[in-house]
Design a binder for these strands. Structure first.
Length: 644
DNA sequence: ATAGGGTTAG
């Protein structure tokens, strides 16, 4: 124990003010490594403290473990987890001053720190100076690269270690490399590592197998995942979680839920990883009912207090169209962190609640949570989705001027969208020309969307060319251009674009809409005749469209691409998938409930107008999620303000 | 009692 009397008097108050200071050296360091690395490092770098710690004649005594190396190693992990390069350098120079060497585990830790902070060169320099590099040293270097996703650097170090130095890798080495491969989708390198693991007979290591499951699951090799699991002697909860996640990520989310049921039958209690995998499955299945079930599970397992889980749930509800549920979850999170605030902000943004997003942002700043580049992406997106041009411009300026965040591509595409929405096409184009980054397809796509809405064919053509050269196989761009021509009555140009598409072997992604009913998702495609309730749905649709026609509404046939007879056009357009889904929704949901529909593509103009009118005539709220955002239709108006 | 490793939210 450190006795109070032996502590230097000026140091004591600051020590005592730290939460969890137990006057026990080990506990103290450990506690702060986990709880408050930032503050811990700050305190340490105040000279007096580290001098006291490192001096052999220190008045502070650590009777049980006087080895400063151990304490320093805690400290250095703390530096790593508070991701501050200045602390890292401070500790480094302190180590050199005090010990005049950096080797052994102090060296290992510093190497790991530098690599984790993305300072590969500093790490390499330090590493090369270390005279006694053992397996752990190499693993520290490799794991640091791994955390940053530097697959090549991992493998490079691996080769040097194995073939130049003759040090045999162990499972830790291979796990680090595999997880780097998984995070970057480097499947060939991952397979190579897998081969190595086989050669060394290491596939009995559960953690190694798990990292391989993750690799194959993330890269879409579900069959490889299944083969691995068959050969695995015994898995643990992480293996189960990864199986659920692998299915959720590869279009077989229902099987993922099946694995969850098997897991429960095997008597294994779900943890945060399980629940997060299930949330992913819910998102893919689009089942609100299932999400509520997982919500219940979260509560039952006491995982609601876990910030990651709560944020995942909040985000899921927003994506499923239940923004009110998201808000409820958010309000129950105590001390929401940056990610939780941003998730809520993103929910408001995608639903077009710009004012709420702004208020939320102000609230976040007020309580002292620092926004980052993701926060601003969603804030700007919220402004653009709600037409808050002036506000958006202001936030864009504040972002770099006040928060020191340099705008990224996402921010630029939001700004282009924002300017384009208010018809400032030239300003938007100027912004693209001025931006210091190379504009990507999202940026050009935002301008293209504005050209479509404002019918600026000249600029649209130019932008389309850019998009064609950036993404030659993205059929959406050809379709948009063709639509633009059709809307302007330029049928010949429209058919040329379609011919070009055909020439390139591109096919139009067929539109379809989804709606949940009775624990199941009902899918509708254009003119779909496969649904069992077909007759009723078409009858309902005709009835509603009849009511709309009576009210004097004429179908916006310009949204149909083909130059066909008016009557045929009207017939085709009335069978669009979102209309079928709305008709179905009117039939099966209670009058008080919103009709929630998901569409794989962007909603078409006619369906948008129709949805507005149905919301008015049938007095129903209709929520449609298209590939870009949510549209809330109520009393004849849409939350998007007719710009999307 | 100390260093390197598997799944994790915006």
């Amino acid at each position: 124990m450190i006795t109070v009397a032996s502590c230097s008097s000026s140091l004591l108050p600051s020590l005592q003010s730290l939460p969890g200071f137990l006057f026990k050296s080990r506990t103290f360091f450990y506690f702060h490594q986990i709880q408050n690395p930032q503050r811990f490092c700050k305190l340490f770098t105040q000279k007096r403290f580290h001098n006291a710690l490192l001096s052999p004649r220190s008045s502070v005594q650590f009777p049980s473990h006087p080895n400063p190396d151990i304490l320093l190693s805690y400290l250095i992990s703390a530096v790593g987890s508070c991701s501050s390069i200045s602390y890292c350098r401070a500790i480094h120079s302190c180590v050199i001053k005090s010990f005049n060497y950096t080797d052994g585990f102090i060296g290992d830790q510093l190497v790991s720190c530098y690599t984790r902070l993305g300072r590969a060169d500093d790490a390499r320099n330090l590493f090369d100076e270390m005279p006694n590099k053992d397996l752990v040293s190499w693993n520290s270097l490799i794991s640091g690269f791994s955390r940053r996703g530097y697959v090549d650097k991992c493998l490079d170090a691996f080769f040097r270690m194995k073939f130049e130095m003759g040090i045999e890798p162990n499972e830790v080495t291979l796990i680090s490399i595999t997880s780097a491969c998984a995070s970057r989708g480097a499947i060939d390198e991952g397979k190579y590592t897998h081969g190595f693991a086989l050669k060394l007979g290491m596939l009995w290591e559960v953690k190694l197998v798990n990292s391989l499951i993750n690799l194959y699951g993330k890269s879409g090799y579900l069959d490889a995942v299944c083969r691995l699991v068959e050969t695995m002697p015994v898995g643990n909860i992480v293996s189960w979680n990864l199986m659920i996640a692998s299915h959720a990520q590869n279009g077989t989310a229902a099987d993922g839920v099946g694995y969850f049921n098997l897991m429960r039958r095997a008597g294994i209690n779900p943890d945060d990883g399980t629940v997060l995998s299930l949330l992913e499955a819910c998102e893919n299945l689009g089942l609100q009912k299932l999400a509520e079930g997982v919500h219940g599970l979260i509560t039952k397992c006491g995982l609601y207090a876990n910030a990651t889980v709560a944020t995942g749930l909040l985000d899921l509800y927003a994506k499923l169209g239940r923004l009110n549920y998201s808000l409820k979850v958010f309000e129950e999170v105590n001390n929401p962190d940056k990610v939780a605030w941003t998730a809520m902000l993103a929910g408001y943004a995608v639903h077009g609640n710009g004012r709420e997003a702004m208020e939320l942002f102000e609230g976040m700043v007020k309580v002292g949570v620092e926004p980052d580049h993701v926060t601003f992406t969603h804030l700007l997106s919220a402004c653009s989705h709600s037409g808050l041009v002036k506000e958006g411009k202001n936030y864009f300026d504040i972002m770099s001027q006040v928060y020191g965040i340099e705008p990224r591509l996402d921010h630029y595409s939001c700004m282009v969208d924002l300017l384009g929405r208010s018809g400032l096409l030239n300003d938007a184009y100027e912004l693209i020309k001025r931006m210091p980054l190379k504009p990507n397809s999202a940026v050009w796509g935002a301008l293209f969307g504005a050209c479509r809405v404002y019918g600026n064919i000249e600029l649209g053509k130019e932008v389309a060319e850019r998009l064609f050269s950036l993404d030659p196989s993205d059929s959406r761009n050809y379709i948009m251009l063709s639509n633009m021509y059709s809307a302007a009555g330029l049928w010949r140009d429209a058919s040329k674009v379609r011919a070009l598409m055909k020439e390139k072997g591109l096919i139009r992604n067929p539109g379809c809409s989804f709606i949940e009913h009775g624990n199941k998702i009902h899918r509708f495609a254009v003119g779909d005749r496969s649904h069992p309730e077909l007759e009723k749905i078409y009858t309902k649709l005709e009835e509603v469209i009849g009511k709309i026609r009576e009210a004097g509404f004429v179908s916006k046939t310009e949204f149909i691409l083909h130059d066909v007879e008016q009557a045929v056009k009207e017939d085709m357009i009335s069978k669009h998938s979102e209309k079928l889904a709305i008709a179905f929704g009117l039939l099966v949901t209670n009058a008080g409930m919103p009709i929630i529909i998901t569409k794989n593509l962007r909603i078409c103009g006619d369906c948008h107008s129709t949805a507005k009118l149905i919301s008015l005539i049938e007095k129903r709220t209709i929520i449609i999620r298209d590939s870009k955002r949510f549209h809330h239709f109520a009393a004849g108006i849409c939350s998007c303000g007719d710009y999307w």
